[in-house]
């Protein structure tokens, strides 16, 4: 139940985040680039949930992004999937409960997903706007990823806390009241 809720919440959040990215100008006039929440969501999904969720987020999040942007349809799913797979395969080696580790992974994901997407676009023969300014945009997206990934972990932690089963209490067993049978 909680697992289904988690993936539903992830997908709804991805759907809304992509819409907000397109509908609200946000930081674009100041930073020159619109922050992206999908890499941070993918880091959380890959480290905390099942591989199926990674597939779902890569497919639906990527398609949502491509449907609202001028990207060719399907181009965002592959970088997201690559990121999710690598993180999921190595999740036992990552200190995923540490906010610092989350921030570092968020920064790497924030820079890696757009880089892979642009690489894919170039290899497909498209002409995305790329130049020295892209380095600045990549840096901004990395910083954004580092800032927002620990928050995503916190948000889903809180969700788990609210909707998950309550932890078992100490119970009524008391060792000092135990009746010992047999010879002492």
């Amino acid at each position: 139940m909680l697992r289904s809720l988690q993936i539903v919440a992830t997908l709804v959040l991805a759907w809304l985040a992509v819409f907000l990215q397109a509908a609200w100008d946000g930081f674009r006039p100041i930073l020159g680039v619109q922050p992206d929440l999908l890499p941070a969501l993918m880091v959380h999904t890959a480290l905390r949930t099942h591989l199926v969720n990674v597939f779902l987020l890569a497919a639906l999040g990527g398609l949502a992004m491509d449907s609202l942007s001028a990207n060719p349809v399907g181009v965002t799913s592959l970088p997201l999937l690559a990121l999710g797979l690598v993180l999921h395969m190595r999740k036992e080696l990552v200190l995923r409960d540490q906010p610092f580790a989350q921030a570092v992974l968020g920064a790497l994901a924030g820079a890696a997903v757009p880089t892979l997407t642009v690489g894919l676009l170039l290899s497909l023969g498209h002409e995305p706007l790329v130049g020295w300014g892209s380095l600045w945009q990549g840096a901004v997206l990395a910083v954004w990823g580092a800032a927002v990934t620990p928050l995503v972990f916190r948000l889903f932690g809180a969700l788990e806390h609210w909707f998950g089963p309550a932890p078992a209490g100490p119970g009524s067993f008391r060792p000092d009241r135990e009746i010992r049978r047999g010879r002492v």
Partner: peptide
């Protein structure tokens, strides 16, 4: 109604 969410296109 909506602006381009990615930085590599203008639309």
């Amino acid at each position: 109604t909506l602006r381009e969410p990615t930085p590599w296109w203008r639309s």
